[in-house]
């Protein structure tokens, strides 16, 4: 019974000294129910209490990769039956490994807020053309960039819905408006910036 166990763990969280395992286990409860937003909140709270928690960090990465795979499949119209990742409980005796054990995802740039910032900067450049090409990889077609500018002209960022996910190396963003017009952006890190290398209307 997820609700009862979550409530029990929540009570312990409020009455105990900081124990990252409590938030971690609430994350596992949510993740096993595929409640990704709740799971991410709990895992991130657990990490705030112990930055060394490689297992918790690995679970977060698994969620991002799982969602990215789903986003890819949905964007490309190829339904897949993707088994959810496995999530493990943490007892009180767990020894948290160095976060470097999850080295592949140990990248401060690989965060939703960083990508949101880049997408917003890209959006502003679309509207005023200043530095627009810098948001795309070097060999991206200037004609395609111009078409994108025309496509997004006179739209408001606040009206656009963003779905963001990460794979091991790339970021996937699906930008949509209220009329279900959707654009898939694939981005990769070039130096310290996310750059668009594929832009597809869905």
């Amino acid at each position: 019974n997820r609700a009862a166990m979550d409530s029990r763990l929540a009570e312990l969280e409020s009455r105990c000294p900081p124990m990252p395992q409590l938030a971690h286990n609430r994350g596992v409860l949510a993740a096993r129910a595929s409640d990704w937003p709740d799971a991410i909140d709990h895992f991130e709270r657990s990490l705030q209490q112990d930055r060394r928690a490689a297992q918790t960090f690995g679970h977060l990465r698994q969620i991002f990769e799982h969602r990215a795979a789903k986003a890819y499949a949905s964007a490309l119209g190829t339904p897949i039956d993707l088994p959810p990742p496995l999530f493990e409980w943490q007892s009180s005796s767990i020894e948290n490994a160095e976060r470097r054990a999850a080295a592949q995802a140990d990248n401060p740039l690989q965060s939703i807020s960083t990508l949101e910032y880049e997408l917003f900067a890209w959006w502003q450049a679309l509207q005023n053309s200043i530095g627009l090409a810098e948001h795309y990889v070097d060999d991206f077609s200037p004609v395609a960039i111009q078409l994108s500018r025309e496509y997004f002209a006179n739209r408001q960022w606040a009206d656009m819905h963003r779905e963001i996910a990460f794979t091991a190396n790339d970021a996937v963003a699906v930008i949509s408006d209220a009329f279900h017009n959707r654009t898939l952006l694939l981005l990769r890190l070039v130096g310290h910036r996310w750059k668009i290398y594929q832009e597809t209307r869905l």
Binding site: M5, L9, M19, N25, L29
Partner: peptide, 20 residues
């Protein structure tokens, strides 16, 4: 009411045992 660390560890492990 605050709980001791030891009590919390016992409660945590009991929860994990139930969940596993």
């Amino acid at each position: 009411e605050r709980l001791s660390l030891q009590r919390c560890q016992v409660e945590l492990d009991a929860a994990v045992a139930l969940l596993s």
